[in-house]
Amino acid sequence: MRFLRANNRLNNHDAGILPLINVVFLLLIFFMLAGHLAASDPFAITPPKSQSEGRNSPQDLVILVSADGRFALDGVEMSEEGVIKAASERLRKSPAGETPGLRLKTDGNAPAARIVRLMQRLRQAGIQKLKLLTIPAN
């Protein structure tokens, strides 16, 4: 009898946290579907805002430029020369016909002259497809 009562108490206890588990499951599913997993950047940036509707292309290489002049290629911090060299190397090694493009993820407060200079040097290194990453204004 005592055994049975213990069972009952256990039952009630479990039934009490069931709504909580429901909510946690819903949250879990929401975060799994709504967010997307991405490797975190070596330094934080605040991207420029724009009304552009262009689609992001996740398969492309990404160059990160911070406001204080640091550069990173696909999450690895390196010098400007290193970034240009590594990017052109990687594009050359990729099979013909499916050459990935290049995305520039810059800080909104980075001096534009520096970005333009980087773009020109990338073009001199033979990179054709360049995109600038932004976020929507609101």
Partner: peptide, 9 residues
Amino acid sequence: SSFLDWRSI
């Protein structure tokens, strides 16, 4: 997970 909605130019 990150929720930033990236666009491109």
